[in-house]
């Protein structure tokens, strides 16, 4: 086996994992699988692309690469603003769509359908604005550095891995150590009791959208940096995201990232041993396997 599989798998897996964290939080706290979550990834990437172009145009030198990476501080700034914009987008979709169903106490499956419709609209809107031609943050080419053990990675890839690790630790600490996280766990177990405990449930829901969208944007920027930016980039990630969230156990942040890494490694293995064209089937195979063997997931509590 080519050890490079490990690096490829970890990189693909960290993007899936970051996206899956948002998905799993929405799933456990708002209690529906959000088919429009992939769109947050794509919109996040496009926000960052437009902003970084804008910043580059206004401030010369913002696009100049910070060695050894391929991108300049303009993209870093653009990503931070894009995270905010993606969060606003998620809040807006919630305000015009999901919140209304919540107020009506609609059954979950109606909300799932609505998220399905929203994903179509949001994705096609991206295609309308940016066309389906792929976009890139940077045209710089990077040389992969040897890491030992026959593995190589570009500085950008290592940066993505490090950033993922940082974000995961941040979210995990937020959830386990802070009052906000405690309130989120409470709403996830029982929203109506949370209100009686004094938790402002609407505020918790807003926090979940902001957090999920910001992480999705980060995943989108990474994917755009390492691969490319396309309107379908989020939709194509959706099945791996679901597989990772269910594999990790819905509601579990460590589960989502571990699930993401497993799916990513599985995809890398499939590319090496079966053929790159079958890569997209790995997530489905993992999904079916976990539903057969352990539907509550690796870190899930009994439903």
């Amino acid at each position: 086996m080519n050890p490079q599989v490990v690096i490829d798998g970890l990189i693909a897996g960290s993007m899936i994992g970051l996206g899956a964290i948002g998905l799993t939080l929405v799933y456990s706290i708002l209690r529906f699988p959000n088919f429009a979550h992939g769109e947050m990834i794509a919109w996040g990437a496009y926000f960052a692309m437009s902003l970084s172009a804008l910043i580059g145009a206004v401030i010369g030198g913002a696009g100049a690469p910070i060695a050894p990476f391929s991108f300049g501080w303009g993209l870093v700034l653009a990503t931070i603003i894009a995270m905010g914009l993606t969060a606003l987008l998620a809040l807006a979709v919630d305000a015009v769509l999901f919140r209304i169903f919540r107020k009506r106490q609609s059954v979950m499956i109606i909300i799932v359908m609505a998220s399905f419709g929203a994903s179509m609209a949001l994705r096609s809107l991206l295609e309308f604005i940016y066309t389906s031609r792929p976009g890139y943050f940077t045209r710089e080419l990077q040389i992969a550095m040897p890491l030992g053990g026959g593995m190589r990675a570009t500085p950008d890839q290592l940066f993505a891995l490090g950033l993922t690790a940082l974000l995961v630790v941040f979210v995990h600490l937020l959830l386990t150590r802070t009052p906000t996280g405690r309130a989120m766990r409470a709403v996830s177990e029982n929203p109506s009791l949370s209100g009686l405990f004094g938790v402002d449930v609407d505020k918790v829901i807003r926090t979940v959208w902001i957090l999920g969208a910001a992480l999705a944007c980060a995943a989108g920027v990474m994917s755009g940096l390492l691969v490319q930016i396309r309107p379908y980039m989020g939709f194509d990630l959706l099945l791996p995201l679901f597989a990772a969230a269910i594999l990790g156990g819905i509601g579990s942040v460590p589960g989502a990232i571990v699930g993401g890494l497993i799916v990513g490694l599985g995809e890398a293995l499939a590319v090496q041993f079966v053929g790159a064209q079958w890569r997209a089937g790995v997530a489905f195979a993992i999904l079916v396997a976990i539903l057969l063997v352990r539907p509550t997931g690796l870190f899930g509590r009994q439903a």
């Binding site: 399905f116 419709g117 609209a121």
Partner: peptide, 30 residues
Amino acid sequence: SLRLVLIGVALCAILLVRPQGILREVRTLS
């Protein structure tokens, strides 16, 4: 692609504004 935006919006809109027809029936279901 704009046509697809419209179909997605239409799907959401029908779910939102016609709760009496579809949703009422579905609600008892579940």
